[in-house]
């Protein structure tokens, strides 16, 4: 039996700060198990990013429960959430979001440094990941010296570096050309297949949807369909 990595029960999220009361999520239930390659799809405003943010501990639900590896993270403090994210979740953002003053190698190594891993372990893991994403020869380059596709591959390596339970990728291919998109999808599919890494994407991109093995369709904050290929 597969181990549930993510367990969402009756998740609601409302935004009340603006004049218009927005119900971004309306009672979402979802379980994602280890090794899944899941795409959360839906039109703009359907609640994809909100759901990803809540799964990632970047935002808090209005009500409902969210469990990661069986731990309820809904009531953790801000600092506890930071620690939780660092140890359990890898993030890949739409606009790469690498640290501009660090080289590609240093960006990958950064989270491991925050985890107080030894220098030897960091060096070995960074080399391994940079080779895996095909950028072992660009380790000393800063983000501004890399293409968008290369930056996103470094971002994937950074997300994998702390050996997280799963990787959340918010529209990871939105800023990439077709070749870079294809390369990135190959990379993530390989990591999923060979290392059993769990991936959860939010996307509009049909190429990503085509490669996903599970597709969760959201509309108006509700899951409309949940298909496994």
């Amino acid at each position: 039996m597969n181990i549930p990595i993510i367990e969402i029960i009756d998740l609601h999220k409302s935004y009340t700060e603006t004049a218009v009361h927005v119900h971004a999520l309306r009672g979402v239930d979802l379980t994602i198990e280890k090794g899944e390659f899941t795409a959360i799809v839906g039109p703009s405003g359907s609640g994809k990013t909100t759901m990803l943010n809540i799964i990632g501990g970047l935002d808090r639900p209005s009500s409902g429960t969210i469990k990661i590896r069986g731990n309820d993270i809904s009531n953790l403090s801000d600092n506890q959430l930071i620690d939780f994210r660092r140890e359990n979740i890898g993030f890949v953002f739409q606009s790469y979001n690498l640290i501009p003053v660090l080289t590609a190698k240093e960006n990958v190594e950064f989270v491991m440094l925050l985890q107080n891993r030894s220098q030897e372990e960091r060096d070995a893991r960074t080399l391994e990941l940079m080779q895996a994403v095909g950028l072992a020869d660009r380790m000393s380059n800063r983000p501004s010296e890399l293409s968008g596709g290369q930056q996103q591959r470094v971002a994937v390596a950074r997300a994998l570096a702390p050996k997280p339970a799963f990787i959340l990728a918010d529209e990871p291919t939105a800023n990439l050309d077709s070749v870079s998109t294809s390369d990135l999808l190959d990379l993530m599919a390989n990591l999923n297949r060979e290392e059993g890494m769990t991936f959860v994407f939010s996307t509009h991109d049909q190429r990503v949807i085509d490669r996903a093995r599970r597709i969760v369709l959201l509309e108006d904050g509700k899951i409309i369909s949940d298909e496994r290929k």
């Binding site: 801000d78 620690d83 660092r86 993030f91 640290i99 950074r158 702390p162």
Partner: peptide, 13 residues
Amino acid sequence: HEFGILKAIGMKS
């Protein structure tokens, strides 16, 4: 934006 990223990936305040 950058501070948000740092917090997101696990850097403490």
